[in-house]
Design a protein around this nucleic acid. Structure first.
Lengths: 243, 243
DNA sequence: GCCGGTTCCCAACAAAGGTTAAGGAGGCGC
DNA sequence: GCGCCTCCTTAACCTTTGTTGGGAACCGGC
């Protein structure tokens, strides 16, 4: 297993606050992680459940989503390798949304018990994990702005730029194309629009030669126009603790 | 000052996880809090700033909001007495949105230094504060669903029911009416619609005798129809740690 | 290679929400 | 009491997005 690679991705993300010493890093490396393969479309943690472990994305893509009483689904976030999308369960106990693998993925499961032991023993790690959940919340805030204020083409552009930026940190968005394995229906669920309208704006941005989204990949055709549309300000990602 | 009352509200909120012992409570009570009056409309913490203290709402109403490059504003959350709307700054350092008092308010400021000392000394308190920020994030998630999936009248209904529920916990929403001191423009900013459309749906819900919003107060006229519209499921508030 | 499902694509029409513009009510300072 | 300012209110018109219904392309399983 490329356990080393996974831990490296996780540690790089956590370490943006540069508060981890060697002993902290060793303790994280020593965490027992159960690696499992997950098939596309299968729920990892279901709304209403009370999980006893957290899920580290090793390879693949996951989304968090809520379904309303009337059956509409809203995607809340997209998660990539190196992230722990259900870290909040360490203190919230009951899921208020679903966590789903959108493509076949490799996942690592870490028991709450071992994470709690870690945070009790090492305050540095507690702060770093806490910070991680705070960045998660910052991304939710920007997602609210996206869905609440931007017209659909800008919404799509912003989401694409955010994902690209996050993938780039782990070296997965080199060049002008990167993976975004969502169907048009799922893109609609993320942006708060219908699949028909998602198709319309994807086509529109393709016709305007700004981005081309097809078969789970995004190709950036015009960097400048994309930036213009997305109005992306990366401060909310809190990548650099010194800024 | 009714410092006792304030601390009681704060402790009740934090204590939903029932993880605080007497020594923890004593330590929180011993926190140095600088009480200040704030005028309506004035920013408490501005986007881009690097605060050195957290703000406890003692009396009044605050909102968090983001302004896009093109000048549109989205309200992200509404905060009431007993809450600490900028607790995330303890680990994020730089604000990615504004915190604003929407009416004249009494605020208590607690230095990051004293909060950090507290969390370093008392792991229970760390977990409780961490949990508080996680509930904050859970409310953001529901806000995304609200803005992304519900039609405008349901959006308004949901927001009203959520605020009412949270006010009720602190005994501020007894009976059929409660305070919601937002202008129609601000209601629009919270729901992701224009002030004109906000006015339209407020009028509509008034005409249909469901709720009456005027002069900063909400009167619930028809409990059943309101519930029907809002489709409110309070699980996301995580009020009871045992569920 | 064929078949059945999913995904993508598209057009016509309907509905929700945005824009512009303007008048009226209420509160506050002088 | 007057004037100013903010907030509320409304109408007419326009744009974006949703709905319905269909067909084409792709993919995995047999």
């Amino acid at each position: 297993m490329d356990r080393e690679l996974v831990l490296a991705a996780l540690l790089r993300r956590l370490n943006t606050v540069s508060g981890l010493d060697d002993a902290d890093i060793a303790a994280i490396r020593a965490l027992p992680i159960a690696v499992r393969q997950w098939e596309a479309g299968r729920a990892i943690v279901a709304d209403g459940s009370r999980p006893t472990e957290c899920c580290l994305v090793i390879e693949g893509f996951c989304v968090r989503a809520k379904t309303t009483v009337s059956g509409q689904r809203q995607i809340l976030s997209i998660h990539i390798a190196g992230e722990i999308p259900d870290l909040q369960n360490l203190h919230l106990h009951r899921m208020d949304h679903d966590l789903i693998a959108v493509v076949a993925s490799t996942l690592g499961f870490i028991s709450h018990a071992s994470l709690r032991a870690l945070t009790r023993a090492r305050p540095n790690i507690t702060e770093v994990l806490w910070r991680d959940t705070l960045i998660d919340a910052a991304i939710f805030r920007e997602w609210i702005v996206n869905v609440g204020q931007r017209p659909a083409p800008s919404r799509l552009a912003h989401t694409v730029v955010e994902l690209r930026r996050r993938l780039a940190i782990t070296g997965r968005a080199a060049g002008d194309t990167f993976e975004m394995p969502l169907t048009q229906e799922q893109i609609g669920e993320a942006l708060g629009i219908t699949p028909v309208h998602a198709n319309r704006i994807i086509r529109q941005l393709r016709d305007e030669r700004i981005i081309d989204i097809s078969r789970g990949r995004v190709a950036v055709l015009d960097e400048a126009k994309l930036a213009e549309l997305a109005q992306f300000d990366d401060r909310y990602l809190h990548q650099d603790a010194s800024l």
